[in-house]
Computed example of a mutant assay.
Amino acid sequence: MVVALLSSSPAGAFGGMGSGVRGGSNDSGELSASASHSRIKVTQTSGPTGGKQGTVSSTDVNWKPPPCWYEPVFTPEQLKDFSENDGSGDVGLRDGWYGSKLWTDHFRDEKDATTIFTRPATVKGYKNYNLGKKGYFWRGVAPNVTGLDDTSLCSRLMFWQDAGEIPDVPKAPTPEILAEYAYDKVKVPGTEVELKPAARSTVNLPTWVWLDKGTFRDVKVRAELPGTGLWAETTAKPVALHLDPGTEDAELFPASGDCAINDDGSIGTPYTKGNADKTPPCGIRYLHATGGTPYQLSASITWKITWQGSDGTDGDLPDGTFETTQDMNVQEIQSINR
C-alpha cells in the first residue's frame, strides 16, 4: 500500500516546488508539478493593445471566479518520465507525494493509494502508467491556493480519462468555467479623458469631457484548455463612462455622471470655440476653486461582459469597471473693479 504525504490544505500551498520540478504544463507551456498552475491558454483576439491597460473589477461584489476544476496533466509517457526521474509534486489538490516510490507504486505497480482528506479514500492502482493507451491523467487545479475557496470540490486523486472524453465528475471543465477564468485576464484601456479647458477649469463655467472615436472598442479574449477541445470567447463591450468630480461642490452633465458611449467608440462631444457657456453633453461644472490642492477627477468605464463557448453555450458575466484619476485645478474668475 502506498504511503502518501498528505495535507488538509491545497497541495500547491506547501512543499516549495522549485522551477526545476517537472510535471503538468502550466499556462506558459512550461512543466510544473504544482496544482496551482492552470494549462488554460488565454489570448486576446480583438480590441486595442498597447498603452495603459488594466483588468476590470466586477460590479457584483459577491461574484467570484470558480475556485477549482479538473484538467488533463500527463500523458502516460510524461507521467512515467516524471515519476521515475523526479517524483515530487502534487498528485491532487490536497495530496502531495514526495519521492519516486510513491508515484511508481501507484501508477506503475498497481498498488492502491490511501488518502485522508479526499474521496474516495482508497484509489485503485494503475499498471505501467497506462502506456499504450490514448488519454490523459487528470488532476484538480486551483489557481488561488492561498484563498479561502473550497478546493475540496476538486480534490480527487489524479485519475485516468480516455482521449477525446471529458470526465463525468463534478467540476469537470466547461466553456463557462473557461470564460469565468478569463474574466480577470481581459485587459482594457485606461480612461484618461480629454478636457476643455485642459489645464485649469474655472468656477461656474462648464468643463467639457470627451473621448475621440475609436478609443473604446470591444475587447475579446479566447480561453482554451489543451487536450480537451474546449474553448470560450469572453467579450467586454464598453457601454458607459461615469464621472466623479472628486468633490461634492460640482454639477455633472448629465446629472447622473453617466455619459453614454457612442456607436463609433467616442464619448461626449469635443469642445469647439464658442461653446464656453453652453451645457456639454458630458462634463462638469465646479462650484468652488481648488485652493492649491487639485480635485481628483475619476473616470470609470463600465464594460458589459458576455461569453460564447465551443459547445454552443453562451451567457453573461457581471459587468466590469476600470477607473483612472487625474488632477483637476479649478480657479476663480478674475475681475478688476475700477
Rank of each mutant, 00 (worst) to 15 (best):
C259F: 00
Y271K: 02
V219L: 10
T247Y: 04
N262Q: 15
A260D: 10
A182L: 10
D263C: 09
V193F: 07
A199Q: 15
R217L: 15
A182S: 15
A236C: 08
L230T: 04
W208I: 07
P270C: 03
D264S: 08
G274P: 01
K220C: 03
A198R: 12
R222P: 00
N262E: 15
D244E: 05
D258Q: 06
A240K: 15
A232W: 12
L243V: 08
N204D: 14
Y183V: 03
W208S: 05
V221S: 04
E233D: 13
R222F: 03
L205D: 13
N262I: 13
A199T: 15
D263L: 15
T228C: 08
V203Y: 13
L243Q: 05
K196S: 12
S201F: 13
V186K: 10
L225N: 04
A182Y: 06
K237N: 14
P254H: 06
P245S: 06
K187S: 12
G257I: 00
S266V: 07
N204H: 12
E194Y: 03
T207E: 08
T234Q: 07
K185I: 09
P254K: 08
L230Y: 12
S256K: 02
K187H: 11
F216Y: 15
G274Q: 01
Y271N: 00
G274H: 02
D184E: 14
F216A: 08
G246S: 04
Y183C: 07
T207C: 09
D263S: 15
E248R: 14
E192W: 09
Y271F: 12
P197M: 01
P226V: 06
A198L: 08
A236M: 06
G274N: 01
E194R: 05
K273C: 00
A255N: 10
W210M: 07
D218R: 11
T215I: 08
E224H: 05
S256E: 05
L241Q: 03
